[in-house]
Amino acid sequence: MSRPIIEISNLVKRYEMGDEEVYALRDVSLTIGTNEYVAIMGPSGSGKSTLMNMLGCLDTPSSGTYLFNGENVREMDDDDLAEIRNREIGFVFQTFNLLPRATALQNVELPLVYSGSSKEERRRRAEDALTRVQLADRMTHRPNELSGGQRQRVAIARAIVTAPSIILADEPTGNLDTKTGHDIMALFRELWQAGNTVILVTHEEDIARHAMRIIRLRDGRIESDTTNPDA
């Protein structure tokens, strides 16, 4: 197996809801290596969003260990987490989450603003990223001047611009029509083939089928973890 990026063991996420304790994740163990293409599936309430937040270092576990590239995420403070998200993780959201008043180029440059790249480097890398998602001719457009598919491409360009260790996509086709959704999935496949590690979170079988490995969650536990026979 390739070098592990994500090593999770006995992960638990507990929320206090009034007097009650709610378990979003109970005892999840999981390893994901470089250049894997993984889909995390499950019905709503299965804990897949929580798991995605954990994987994306947006949230920290209640117990268990999460090693990201060998570093213990549970021991990180807010700024460490921000830095690891900035450097190592590229997020793609269902609703794109672009800044509405910024151009495509400015949106893609944003992670580099927080990592402190020079203006020239930001510009160059953002242009590269937009070119890779076939939006070289839309750089100065604002989100409201772009179609849904194009917006998601801008979001993907933003996710890959820092050359992160993983690309984490949460229902990336949820707001797109089938045809556009397929185009986006083709783009993810391309990125995977180019050596990226891609993790999809979805509840759609059609989408999950694009991945090489499918992890199914139910009630906060891993129900199955299989290699995708179709892929």
């Binding site: 700024d79 830095e83 998200r85 820092t162």
Partner: peptide, 12 residues
């Protein structure tokens, strides 16, 4: 939220 997700620190 978006800014934090892509790496903005508290201080930013």
């Amino acid at each position: 939220g978006v800014r934090k997700a892509i790496g903005a620190r508290r201080s930013s």
